[in-house]
Amino acid sequence: MSKSFLIDTTLCTACRGCQVACKQWHDLPAEKTINRGTFENPADLSFDTYKLVRMREEVINGKLNWLFFPEQCRHCIEAPCLETAGDPGAIYRDDKTGAIIFTANTKRLNAAEIIESCPYNIPRKGPDGTLAKCDMCIDRVENGLLPACVQTCPTGAMNFGDRDEMLALAKKRLAVAKKKFPKAMLIDPDDVNVIYLVAYEPELYCANAMASNAVFDITRQVALGRMIRPLTNIASRLL
């Protein structure tokens, strides 16, 4: 049984403990930032930032909202990045957890293609061409620990466990959220292992909160296209 996250944004207070815990566990350096007229920082995900809490001020039905969205890799069930790469030494799925893992060998992939293949715009390229993103804290999970972001979350917004448990919890939480937020929904629950519960339209939270059907399908077609052209990949690697 694969593992899943449920990220209940209706409970997220944007304390950003998850963002720091992620850096701490992965020993990622801090980025040099400035205040850009918002609490949100750094400006984007990066090779050194796998998790970023997006903050949006939105007036909905005449009422101000501050929407929080801890953005990270969705660990797709059919992952376009993995399919695009077609190189299990660089991107593979961990069978036990369902985690999509990027290795140091991602350096040999065409980074732009991989990034383009992701319907959620997650992977980022390092200075030497290596790609990086959330690894589900697979080293922690394999040792019976929760991912660092889940461990640190004070409010219960971040949840992690067996996929069927998380789906059940998602259903329960959605029912609760619907009472207050009639438009509440789960984002792409059938396609991903990181399921977000949002109170309003996903696009209000973050540009790539949801894989729009069109984008997802096209990307997958692209990915499949790449898979039947393995020689091209090999050729480009040889070059």
Binding site: Q19, K23, Q24, A30, E31, K32, T33, N35, F39, N41
Partner: peptide, 9 residues
């Protein structure tokens, strides 16, 4: 640094 990254100024 991790906290300064979040609120630098």
């Amino acid at each position: 640094p991790w906290l300064l990254e979040l609120q630098p100024q």
